[in-house]
Design a protein around this nucleic acid. Structure first.
Lengths: 159, 159
DNA sequence: ACATCATTGTACAACGATGAACAAAAAGCA
DNA sequence: TGCTTTTTGTTCATCGTTGTACAATGATGT
């Protein structure tokens, strides 16, 4: 009931808000994870963006470039730049669809599948190592929060 | 004790691991948040990387480029590319240190301070809006998990 | 059938981020 | 003092990402 409270009850700065601090931590962790993954994938001569592509081709064989770009939250032009590289390296195959001559359907070659499995091994190991300090239920809480964020941001995006 | 269990007890795929799925959600949320923030900052003619710089100059007046780069987890060369732009726009000031003639000490101009406050308002609003679905205690859990990840990844980085 | 609009992939210029090589200044050490 | 090593910032070539403009194909409506 004196001066102390007056200064304590004001939250002028963003970094005093718990949600703000929380998000900054998320962003930095993400950045660090990307950098570390980049280093650990170096000897396979691929980078996180390539791995994202390969994993999705592994899961969804025959997907189109458009669908792939939407899953990865990147532009179509991005795929047009990266996919020919992977194709030249013999990791993926692109063949036109008979019914819709606009689309190119994507799939992994045997070499691509092998490389993807090696890379996923590395990524999984890195994630497990980084998250061993957090109990599974905390990971579930994190996942739920993140899914809510994704839903919120996607909703106002496609209006 | 028959065939069913044999296939069920194997977790071949990364996306079956809860920690893996959890991290994928983190990465996608981060990506989306960045894109949304980029759009909402557009009318101020700055992008998330610039805002990161400005906020740190707001908090830590007189910081050097090296210290700034370390806080942002980017290379020194990155700062050498971005800071001259902000200086030409009259948002920051760079002046040499008398005692150590190598370093440049950074500070915001009045115009830079004003712009930073506007931009922080936007970012804070976006974060609050995206996280309103998550109770504060969940945010704290998220923050703790992320700080652990950061600590883990930084530890093996600076060895 | 025809015109119009939407969708899919590409080409290109602009920009941010990186790592390596470099110059200048400081720090450590003989 | 003089020599080496470390630190700080810059420059440059390279690469991923974006947005825009474009061509080809498909879908829609009259």
């Amino acid at each position: 009931m004196n001066k102390k409270q007056v200064t304590a009850e004001h939250h002028h700065f963003p970094w005093d808000h718990p949600r703000f601090r929380s998000w900054i931590a998320v962003a930095r962790a993400c950045q660090l994870m990307q950098q570390t993954l980049t280093r650990e994938l170096a000897h396979l001569d691929i980078k996180p963006p390539h791995l994202d592509i390969l994993i999705n081709l592994y899961r969804f064989d025959g997907i189109t470039q458009q669908e792939l770009a939407r899953k990865l939250l990147v532009g179509r032009s991005n795929m047009s730049m990266l996919l020919p590289q992977l194709e030249k390296r013999g990791l993926i195959k692109r063949r036109g669809d008979a019914r819709d001559k606009r689309v190119l359907r994507l799939s992994l070659t045997p070499a691509g599948r092998t490389l993807t499995e090696e890379a996923m091994e590395i990524q999984t190991a890195l994630i497990e190592k980084s998250l061993t300090g957090s109990p599974i239920e905390d990971c579930m809480t994190v996942a739920q929060s993140m899914e809510r964020i994704i839903a919120t941001l996607l909703k106002e995006d496609g209006d």
